[in-house]
């Protein structure tokens, strides 16, 4: 038990140190292109951390979404806005104070949390064993995550898909849905001028 914990701890803490260094670099850099690239690195590192926490599906999603799509969208935003942040004018004291107090409060709260990785934590004894036992009998597929996602908690997933769809509608309303017809008009206008 203890040896396993120490093994996990070494890898976890190494990855965590890389994550913190990346986050600090993001704080300090003013070139937004570098910030976006580091945000991609941050996502990839957190995907590695998800793997050490046994969450393969989550790691997979984080690597594809965080390091792939989100980087492309951020770059697209930079192309439409600016590439450098202006220097910060006000002092960093108040934000730092707020973050320290909030962080200290949260850490004080974790002192009562159950130990990391123990098999008899409250979270492990409620519905999770039920899902793990019932999946092979009732659904007959090995990936419990897919079974819970699509069957046992299908309502949740339907809700999430609708949220993704709604977000897309909002983006298209804000940015004008590809603007294909509008650009064709522009082209024809230019031809008229010629």
């Amino acid at each position: 038990m203890s040896n396993g914990l120490i093994g996990v701890a070494v890898i976890d803490i190494l990855l965590f140190l890389f994550l913190v260094l990346t986050a600090i670099a993001i704080t300090r850099l003013r070139n937004l292109f570098a910030v976006v690239m580091l945000a991609g690195v941050f996502s990839l590192l957190s995907a590695a951390l998800f793997v050490t926490l046994d969450a393969m599906d989550v790691a997979f999603t984080e690597a594809a979404v965080g390091a792939g799509i989100s980087t492309v969208l951020l770059l697209g935003t930079l192309a439409l806005t600016v590439r450098d942040e202006k220097p910060v004018t006000h002092s960093a004291f108040l934000p730092l104070l707020i973050c320290t107090i909030a962080g200290a409060t949260l850490i004080y709260g974790t002192l009562d949390m159950p130990p990391f990785g123990a098999a008899d934590n409250p979270v492990q004894t409620h519905v999770a064993p039920d899902y793990l036992e019932r999946t092979p009998v009732e659904i007959g597929i090995p990936n419990t995550v897919a079974a819970v996602l699509a069957s046992y908690r299908g309502f949740d997933t339907l809700g999430e898909v609708v949220v993704v769809f709604t977000a897309a509608i909002a983006v298209l309303l804000l940015l004008g849905g590809g603007g294909r017809s509008r650009r064709h008009d522009d082209v024809s206008d230019e031809r008229k001028k010629d």
Partner: peptide
């Protein structure tokens, strides 16, 4: 949700 010594839920 991690259990030490456990594996991915597949």
């Amino acid at each position: 949700g991690k259990i030490v010594g456990g594996t991915a839920p597949i």
